[in-house]
Amino acid sequence: MRKFSHTASLALVLAASLAGCSGGTKKESLVDKIKARDQLICSGSQGIPGLSRPDEKGVWRGFDSDVCRAIAVAILGDAQKVRFVPLNAAQRLPAVQTGEIDILSRTSTLTFTRDMAIRFVATTLYDGDVVITRKAENIDEPKKLAGRTICMQGGGSLVEGALDELEAANDFKMKRVYFDSTITARDTYFAGRCDAYVTDGLAAQGNIATVAENPAEHTTMYAGDAIEPNGIAIRRGDDKLFDVARWTFNVLIWAEKNEITQANVDDKAKNGDEVTKRILGGDPSFGRSMGLDPKWAYNVIKQVGNYGEIWDRNLGEKTPIKADRRFNKLYTNGGLMFPLPWD
């Protein structure tokens, strides 16, 4: 009996020290780890046009990739200090949970279930589902999709939901044709296999512009009013990284609202109003609470640009994507994007 209690107490001590250890590692913020390794590890994808894709030289291009760069600049002061780990849709959540990546920025829709597993920080893009059809077939309103074939990528619950709603509201059925990737589905539609193709709203215009033989033959409509808030996410329980990610994204929106761009940020830092000067490095204590350099916000804009610049570079009118900015406009222009106050 006595021997047993000895063993038991020893086991308890061991368990407690183990728990203490793991508790200790959990408390260490990823921000410190990122600084120690001098590199931010961010999610890549397997190639999503305009959002994240490796180019010929292995450099990641796209909106989601640039958001990662902004966070790398905030923490490390250098947009080059980020490594992208390619992930597919199934891997992206476990990759955050296990610490394989620091930041998830890869077309991930904020949902309740996902937010219970990882922690969503901010909504970076509002997307909706768009149906592309041929003008010649005169499908210009959802009702006319009755009995038509629609090409789509399998496995997207939100697209399915949007189509379900559409069918329920109009009391008809479509024939859904599934593909493993949205690119295959798209090419199949443009090759004439389907009457319609449903995809992310952001990609729709660009698809017509680049893939269609004659872009004028195609038209688009929104599939229902579903909205997909795509966001950046981190591991749960890391307040420090949460702060950095949330307020870095806020810098991007705030700068666009105040017309601060890569080109004029130096001027604004010198001659702007008091708040602008404080945020752009005039106040040595700004950023201290997050453990960042006082000029972190200035660096972010200088190296990556504001939200509008990131949009224009990757998704805007001058790119082949030509996305409809829609809900992603500033609130002053009828969108949903607004900066949080710095007070």
């Binding site: 397997q46 046009p49 894709r53 490796p54 390619p86 992930l87 990737s181 690119i183 798209r186 090419d187």
Partner: peptide, 26 residues
């Protein structure tokens, strides 16, 4: 291995096809 996010030949080809400048010659 493409399903686990490794860039083997086929995944690399697919990633190359994601370039919006080209009309995706699959």
């Amino acid at each position: 291995v493409l399903v686990v996010g490794l860039f083997d030949l086929i995944s690399s080809g697919k990633a190359a096809l994601a370039d919006p400048e080209w009309s995706s010659p699959s």
